[in-house]
Amino acid sequence: MTAAVSSPSMRRPARPDLRLLLGIVLVLASIGGVWFTVQAARTTAPAYVATRTIVPGDVVTAEAVRSVEVSLGTVAENYLTADALQTGVVATRTIEAGELVPAASVGSPDAARTTRVVVRSAVDVPASVSAGTVVEVWAAPQRERGIYDAPRILVADATVVSVARDESMIGGGAAQLELVIPRADVAAALTAMSDQSALSVVPVAGAGS
């Protein structure tokens, strides 16, 4: 009796090893991810860096910033663009010198909710107080000449624009400060200055300049 011999053409084709295919796919995906990361790191986009401290309410002009090429990747849209700079924007918070200008830190001039006042502090302010420092303004209403009530917070959140110190005053000196304050506090601030309340400007604890 003759044994039947299977013809090679009748054998079933070998199935591909699924684990091998999966391994190849993973390797290719890894290579693609590394390539994309390298390409993204090499791609730069223009952004703007503050050349000086910009305080809330300042118009952000071409003189206040300089253009730099940086690798921002997918977050490039989160920073100030040339179109926004040309349109005209104002700072809505303090932007430190050397800081990349975030788009969220500027806004339309029409939407500004702050204004500037000049306040004379009855006492000098610390040497650390400078442009960009966040301060509180305290007021002690004058009851009668030379006699004042207990001080209270007049403006809880003001930002210093500039400081002029007067060391000639007896008793430790005084200071005149230009401040950015919320528009809602303007009436109270002007009233305190007109009724000769004793004003004091103090830095907010933990706030950087």
Score class of each variant (00 low, 15 high):
R116E: 13
I95G: 02
Q196A: 10
S197H: 01
A139W: 01
R120A: 10
V180M: 02
M193Q: 09
T43Q: 10
G23E: 04
L179P: 03
L199T: 06
S197W: 00
A158T: 06
G98T: 08
D17I: 15
A3F: 05
A184I: 11
L21P: 08
N78H: 13
V135H: 15
D185G: 03
P109Y: 13
Q39T: 12
A188M: 14
A127H: 12
T92F: 08
V34I: 13
A84D: 11
D157Q: 13
L190T: 10
G32T: 05
S71Y: 03
T37E: 07
I54R: 00
T74D: 14
V65H: 14
E77D: 15
A29N: 13
S121F: 10
F36V: 12
E96Y: 07
L28D: 06
L199Q: 05
T115H: 07
S71H: 04
R152I: 09
L21Q: 11
W138G: 15
P102L: 04
I147A: 09
S71R: 09
I153Y: 09
V202K: 15
V137H: 04
G33Y: 03
A192G: 01
T61Q: 02
V70G: 06
P126S: 05
G146R: 03
V101H: 02
T61V: 06
A40G: 12
R42S: 14
A112W: 08
A198C: 10
R19D: 05
V68M: 05
L21M: 08
V186Q: 08
S162R: 09
E63M: 09
T115P: 02
I24K: 06
P16I: 15
L80F: 06
E136G: 14
A4L: 14
I147M: 03
V65N: 08
I181T: 08
T51A: 01
V118N: 01
R11C: 09
A127P: 10
S9Q: 13
V68P: 06
G98P: 08
A131I: 02
F36T: 12
A41E: 15
V25T: 06
D110F: 06
T37D: 07
Y148I: 02
I181G: 02
V134P: 10
V186F: 03
A103T: 11
G23K: 05
D166T: 03
T92V: 11
D157C: 03
A150S: 11
F36C: 12
S6E: 11
V125Q: 04
T53M: 01
A62L: 12
V204R: 11
V65F: 15
A139K: 00
A47H: 01
A76C: 02
V89W: 00
S105G: 00
S7M: 14
T81F: 01
